[in-house]
Amino acid sequence: MAAALRKAMSFNSKTARWVNAWLLLSPAAVLMVAFTHFPIVGGFFASFFSTARPGRPSRFVGVENYTSMLNDPVFWQVLGNNFFYALGTIPLSVSLALLMAVWVNGRFRGRAVVRAAYFTPTILPMIAVANIWLFFYTPQIGLLDKIRSLFGLASHSWLGDPGTALACLMVLAVWKDAGFFMIFYLAALQAIPPELEEAAVIEGAGRWYFFRRITVPLLMPTTLFVVVNATIHSFKLVDHIFILTKGGPDNASSLLLYYIYEVAFSFWDTAYASTLTVVLLAILGALAVGQFAYLEKRVHYR
């Protein structure tokens, strides 16, 4: 009898703990399901329906949205732009970040000022800095053209030329992100034991040799982390497009998320915007899976 009671009690306290746990979790669960999981699943469903229009309710259309996406030249253009943008910004901002970290990690006068200069763009809103950069790029009166005119070069419409508009966005993105990625390299560099460098000096290894053969391999996990984050950034951060080019001319500087915004909130075609979002999520998902698979293979990752 007593044993049965104890059993019931312990069961009760266990259940009570479960209930407690779920109560603690419930606010986060409700919010996350509502604004992360539901939109992922709901968006996937919505991509198989047509957009509801006045007098024409939404109906199931199968893969019609996907076929029209494949036939949409703008989709291919923004996807291409986005890959080009990622390819152009990531290697540059990551290697600059490493360079900055190595410099700032050394001892010299004014180190704090240099570090602050590198890091400051990170805490400024993209919109604000785009306002400033817009003026650099303005034809004739902009700073860039003023400098060019010193060398007798003609004025150029940097943001209006399909050949240079995307590059203008890329320069801004590298400037904004390099200092952010720097701090992760800085943390990793500070974790490298100083004995390693002392030993290398005794062995007669030069600075460059040490950097190439010891520092860079030791920083591999950080590089992976930074590259994955930089890739996410390149698909997620489109604020500067709103100020600098609005995606133009002729979508030459539009990126996938900006196109999604346009389709959803300028053309009000939510079904097609959902279809495009599925592609964006597939890219981000593939990135997550790739990162995870890579980390599984590496035992040494912290």
Binding site: M32, A34, F35, T36, F38, P39, I40, G42, G43, A46, I232, F235, K236, L257, I260, Y261, A264, F265, T270, A273, S274, T277, L280, L281, L284, G285, L287, A288
Partner: peptide
């Protein structure tokens, strides 16, 4: 949500 933040889910989140 670490990989897929609400920032990229603007369409469905607007409807919600």
């Amino acid at each position: 949500q670490i990989m897929i933040m609400p920032d990229v889910l603007i369409v469905q989140n607007y409807l919600t």
